[in-house]
Each structure stands twice: as C-alpha cells, then as structure tokens.
C-alpha cells in the first residue's frame, strides 16, 4: 500500500465563463522516503493537485469528475469532513508559498503552533508524548513544550523566548521556518510544500531546502514539493513529475527524467533553465507554438 496513490484524478472548476476542466486524469504514487518534485508552469494544475490531497478545494466551485486520492489506503474524496480534519495537520502537513501572509499577524507564533499541536494531539495523543487519559492541563503543557522543541529543530535561536513574539518580529526566512515547524509539529506522514522557497532570498532558499530535506530524512516521510524551479528539483528531489495543462507528461526518478527526458516539453523546460555555462543566445523560452503542439 502506497502512502499516497492518486488515480485518474479529474477536476473541474466553475467560473463566470462556465465550467472548465483543470485536471485531466492525474496519476501519482508517493512512497515513504520519497521526495517528489512537481514541476510545471503557472496554471498547469500543480497547486490544485496539492490542495486536492488535503481536500481544500471548496465545492462549488470545484468538482471532481472522476478518480480517487488514496491516502494510506483510504480515499480522501470519500472521507467525511471530520475524518478529513483528523488527517490534516496530523497525517498531512502543508507549507505554502508566501511566509509573510501565511502566519496570522494578530497572534503570537506560540499560540498558532500550540493550537496546531493540540489539534494533532487530540487526533493522536502520542504526538505530544501523552497517553489516552491525559488531562487538559497535561495537553496544554505538552503542546507548549513540543512547540518550543519544534522551533529549535527548525533553527529558531532562543526558541523559548521567541515563542511569544508576533510574526512581524521575524524575517521572511525565519517566518518560513516557523511555518515549517507548524506543518511538522503534528508528525505528519506526508508533507505537501507548495512553492516553499519562491518568495525567499536565494541565500535563504538553500537553507530552507536543506531543512526540509533533513526533516524528511530523519522522519522517513513522503513529500510532494510543488515548484516551477527545476534547479530545486535537481538538488533535493528523488522523483519528479512534469505537469502541463492538467496532465502529467512524464514522471519517474529525477536522474532518469532530467538526464533522458522522453517528452519534448520536458526537454524544452530544461533548455529554459539558465546556468553559468549557458552562452549568450542559447537560452530558450517556450514559444506559444511549442506549448500548443505539446498539449
């Protein structure tokens, strides 16, 4: 049984112009210990695939036409709202793009971490190191302790003091560390990271990627890393799926796909990455015609 098994996922979204099909039969299988990179241009359906796994697309406007998303053998598309909530935070962690807008500005980071820890703890007390009969007070104390530990783990200096600070007192990179701590505090089995480094400085990007990589290695969890940056995929992913217009064009081990791309679109995507060796005039853009024919 795979950790995550997406089979023939078809999603349509309704807008003022009518219903448009966004995902055309996505198939993806993620095992523990694998870091899957999902690449593709804006609007190719990467983010909606990620959100679908946690069933965070409201319906309406979203509607699943066919397919299933099996997480640890259970189809999340058929789960009740309550079952879904028990999965979120505890079994599936999520990180989003912009660390400046994804932390609630009106609350101390400690408050936000503790609430997520408490939620995960209610789903499974062992996350907080507690037994089934623990009291409310025990839960609160344990959640606070775990929050500080988690902040230390993601590299926030003097975590015990900074836990009472507000988000605006942290830098962008530090905020993303806090968000990673929030996503990982429930000891999830699957982490979905949607462009986690796009909004950060290049120097900070590498640190955040290393942090994600180390946490995954330590806990042996599966990761779905959504990005449009092939460099990131080459650096930390074990597998890659290339998305285009709601379809996965090719998927497999990073080395196979990036070294020997079987699809012309992947080749074009690779050619559009500038490197230090790229000579003037060699850098390729994706032309409209290219995009039409590959579809």
């Amino acid at each position: 049984m795979a950790l995550l098994d997406i089979k023939n996922l078809n999603l349509a979204m309704r807008s003022y112009e009518g219903e448009t099909q966004i995902l055309h039969g996505i198939d993806l299988k993620i095992e523990r210990g694998e870091i899957w990179g999902m690449v593709g241009e804006t609007g190719s359906g990467k983010s909606l695939t990620g959100l679908s796994v946690s069933r965070l697309i409201a319906s309406p406007p979203g509607r699943y036409l066919a397919g299933s998303i099996e997480f640890q053998g259970r189809d999340v598309l058929k789960a009740t709202d309550k079952e879904m909530r028990m999965l979120r935070g505890r079994h599936i962690g999520m990180i989003f793009q912009d660390p400046t807008t994804n932390l609630n500005p009106a609350f101390r980071i400690g408050t936000q971490l503790v609430d997520v820890a408490l939620h995960a703890g209610h789903a499974d007390p062992s996350v907080l190191g507690l037994g089934a009969g623990a009291s409310r007070g025990d839960f609160k104390k344990a959640a606070k302790r775990v929050a500080v530990e988690m902040l230390e783990k993601v590299g926030i200096p003097k975590a015990a003091d900074r836990i009472d600070d507000y988000p605006h007192q942290f830098s962008g990179g530090m905020r993303q560390r806090v968000l990673i701590a929030m996503a990982m505090i429930g000891k999830p089995d699957l982490l979905i990271a949607d462009e986690p480094t796009t909004a950060l400085d290049v120097s900070v990007q590498a640190q955040i990627l290393r942090l994600i990589h180390d946490l995954v290695a330590e806990r042996n969890i599966g990761v779905l890393l959504i990005t449009h940056n092939l460099g990131i995929v080459a650096q930390i992913c074990s597998h890659v799926a290339v998305m285009f217009r709601g379809r996965i064009l090719e998927a497999g081990k990073v080395n196979d796909v990036l070294k020997r791309p079987s699809h012309s679109y992947t080749q074009a995507l690779l050619n559009s990455v500038p490197t230090v060796h790229t000579k003037r005039g060699e850098l390729m853009g994706l032309s409209g015609a290219m995009r039409e024919t590959s579809a």
Binding site: S54, L56, R85, M86, L87, R88, G89, R90, G93, M94, F96, D98, T101, N102, L103, N104, P105, Q112, D115, V116, H119, A120, A123, L179, M182, A183, G186
Partner: peptide
C-alpha cells in the same frame, strides 16, 4: 480570503476555532 486562513484550515484547525 487571507492566506493564513488557508494555512489554518490545511493544518486541521476546526472551523469554529
């Protein structure tokens, strides 16, 4: 419509909270 509400939902906090 703010991003942090999506994060809070994605990490399983209840609608009431």
């Amino acid at each position: 419509q703010q991003d942090y509400v999506m994060t809070e939902r994605a990490l399983g906090l209840s609608n009431r909270l």
